[in-house]
């Protein structure tokens, strides 16, 4: 058996010096760290200022009144020396308005988005899919302000005249109009994410089911969709959080009347629309009215953050299952 020769001397290897400057590595790393810190620090700053200003608001208005009060009318005094009540800061009508519009939007977007995702991933030919998927993504690229005036100037009057012809009293700024259009806006989000989720169900699952003599639709209903449900739920939660935080459409189409109602034909207002109303124009910076915008912002932030975290958890857990 041959042995390895360890005795012959080698040329000395230079393992200490290299052609490159060590300083460059350090500078590159420093720049990269700096860039990522900017985004993180700005986020932290925003959250801190939200919390701080909201705290100042809660010094004037008790948190229980804010969270459980059913009256919202911050537009009281025009000037600080005017004689007027402090206004009412019960956020319940805003919360219910937000939920009502988001609910309508989800009712529209869930079936449409899910069905189109199923069609795209399971039935559509590759050519059709290659054409429709980018088209759907363009829909996602339409500025929300465009959706907004479409809702306010086209859909809302249409609903109003349609409602009148059957004897219903539809407000010219209705939750229904805003919800319908918001639903349209989040369809691409749902269909695109669900399509990805459905596609990631392994082909082996479909083969197994088809190989047992199941039809295409049986396979989709009994194997593909049950496997995809967690991921689809994640997609729906992300869409819901998008709907809750959406601003332009509701500012333009839902109105500013803080009605506490479940009737989609009436005007309602949302957290985001109120923040816009509170902070546009010249503002006195430490009135309860202005500060209430921060409290609303914090509320919105907490709700959407929770939804996003839950949604991402679900989506990630689901992805791990098959990787």
């Amino acid at each position: 058996m041959a042995t390895v020769d360890t005795n012959t001397p080698h040329d000395a290897l230079d393992l200490v010096n290299s052609q490159r400057k060590k300083g460059v590595e350090f500078v590159v790393m420093a720049i990269l760290i700096l860039c990522s810190l900017v985004a993180v620090l700005v986020t932290v700053g925003i959250v801190l200022s939200l919390i701080f200003e909201a705290y100042r608001f809660f010094e004037r208005i008790p948190m229980t009144e804010f969270l459980f009060g059913t009256q919202w009318s911050p537009q009281t005094a025009l000037r600080a020396d005017q004689v007027a009540a402090e206004g009412a800061f019960g956020a319940v009508p805003l919360i219910t308005g937000t939920l009502l519009i988001s609910f309508i939007a989800m009712c529209v977007a869930t079936p449409l988005g899910l069905m189109s995702a199923i069609y795209l991933s399971e039935y559509a030919s590759k050519r059709f899919r290659d054409f429709v998927k980018p088209a759907l993504e363009i829909l996602a690229g339409i500025p929300t302000v465009v959706y907004g005036f479409f809702a306010a100037l086209t859909v809302a009057p249409l609903l109003r005249s349609g409602g009148e012809s059957v004897g219903l009293n539809v407000s010219s700024e209705s939750a229904l109009a805003a919800g319908l259009i918001m639903g349209m806006m989040i369809i691409p989000l749902i269909s695109s994410l669900s399509d990805d989720v459905i596609n990631s169900v392994p082909q082996a699952m479909r083969d197994a089911s088809l190989g047992l003599g199941a039809t295409h639709s049986e396979t989709i209903r009994k194997v593909v969709l049950p496997s995809a449900i967690p991921g689809v739920a994640g997609a729906l939660l992300l869409a819901a959080s998008r709907a809750i935080g959406e601003t332009m459409i509701v500012v333009m189409a839902a109105g500013l009347a803080a009605n506490l109602t479940a009737n989609p034909l009436e005007a309602v207002t949302t957290i985001t629309a109120q923040i816009v109303a509170l902070l546009t124009g010249d503002q006195e910076f430490d009135s309860a009215k202005t500060l209430s915008a921060f409290a609303l912002g914090l509320l919105l932030f907490v709700v959407t953050l929770c939804l996003n975290i839950i949604a991402l958890r679900i989506v990630r857990k689901y992805q791990e299952q098959y990787d």
């Binding site: 392994p202 082996a204 699952m205 197994a208 089911s209 190989g211 049950p226 496997s227």
Partner: peptide, 9 residues
């Protein structure tokens, strides 16, 4: 099939 492919049931 080649790879065992039980349903996630």
């Amino acid at each position: 099939f080649q790879k065992p492919n039980p349903f996630p049931k």
